[in-house]
Design a protein around this nucleic acid. Structure first.
Lengths: 229, 229
DNA sequence: AAGTGGTCTAGACCACATT
DNA sequence: ATGTGGTCTAGACCACTTA
């Protein structure tokens, strides 16, 4: 209990999990708690605000604070830059550009990114290796309407992800995880059998309402994305 | 800009993405910013603290605040209770217990949950349906050494997840996402072909250093887990 | 040794949702 | 109308880290 508000959080959390304050029940208000714990209301507020943020309690003005009936379970995943992820494990990272093409976006991509009729996209396919072994297959589309200078970038040395991070900010992103079956291309690039189940992440990013890029990251067989909470 | 600290966050975020404060660069200290924005230092502190939490900046005492060279990309996923997830989409939820068995834990489970030699586990297999269609296959192990009353619970009506939520708190959890290939059992239960790529979540939960449960949730073909950030 | 962020306080006013 | 949380302030002291 080095700091007051942390100690408060722990105490409150304990009271909740031990059932002193049951699910759905009203928790004493901030003023009362400040008196009980002999601290300022702001300190109670900080503790309670963070617990609400973590999904343990629910707060409403006038109605007060209640213990969530079903505590929100949420986990935070850090989306790593693949090079750093690999290097962090002490493995050697290698990158290769597989294909590069400027094209009219296919309909599904136009719909997904809400592109204009005449927008062109840069279509890139890349491989990321760890210690010489296939690690991640990257299939990316960059909206040249929003980012014309991507046309002149050299993606044979630096991956599109790292280039984009340095070049453009983004305001909104949608990410999803799913499983996909290895097709001919994937199986060859990732060195697995056709039909193998592979973990895939997709991400669309936007800046000021304009689509920047859509990417599919398909990982080596058996890849897991893990976190604690 | 209804509230000062939110306005501050926006302003600072803008200065960062527009390059006024470049990556790696030192940001003015809290006192100076408070003067510039004509507000209390505590207000600046709140704004900066949240931006640090979001991964945009890095703060160290004495060293000051810097713009992160590679902004941390992180996404938060809410792990839903399957019944609520289905009902939230207006679909009818149905649950079924497929198998129930008390057993000695296999070695891999004993290792994963750090079980004692003579701990027994309750092994459950369940199905969750949405609108009559297979939605999720659940394979669960509950540590009876930590939770003996699970032996007497009736899992034919209420799923183990909902029972556990009501019965036990947990302090730590590890969750991971991956892809798995449908074996005979999975393909029959989920109504897909053998070898289909399926999205899988695994979760181990702990309470006061003791393992409570380990579960594998395998989703219907094509399932995606999505979030925005 | 000194500068920066981290936390806390006491008090104030306000916004919101319930009553 | 009223009670509760949301925010803000001015000032203070402390903890950590670098110089």
């Amino acid at each position: 209990m080095r700091t007051a508000f942390r100690g408060l959080k722990e105490e409150i959390r304990t009271r909740i999990v031990e059932g002193v304050w049951a699910p759905g029940e009203l928790v004493p208000n901030e003023v009362d708690l400040a008196v009980e714990f002999k601290c300022a209301r702001a300190t109670v507020n900080r503790a309670m605000r963070e617990l609400a943020e973590e999904g343990l309690i629910e707060r409403k003005r006038k109605a007060g604070t209640r213990v969530r009936t079903a505590p929100l379970r949420q986990a935070r995943f850090t989306i790593p830059v693949v090079r750093k992820e690999i290097e962090a494990r002490g493995a050697e990272y290698r990158y290769a550009l597989v294909r590069r093409e400027i094209m009219q976006p296919p309909d599904w991509l136009r719909a997904r990114l809400n592109l204009a009729q005449d927008d062109e996209v840069l279509h890139l396919t890349c491989m990321h290796y760890a210690e010489g072994n296939p690690y991640q297959f990257e299939i990316r589309w960059i909206n040249l309407g929003a980012l014309p200078k991507a046309k002149d970038a050299d993606f044979s040395k630096v991956g599109p992800n790292e280039w984009l991070i340095a070049e453009v900010p983004f305001s909104d992103a949608e990410i999803s995880f799913s499983a996909t079956s290895a097709d001919e291309d994937l199986s060859q690039q990732l060195g697995c059998a056709r039909g193998d189940a592979l973990f895939m992440a997709e991400r669309s990013t936007w800046w000021q309402g304009q689509a920047i890029t859509y990417v599919r990251l398909v990982f080596q067989r058996g890849h897991r994305m893990t976190t604690r909470y």
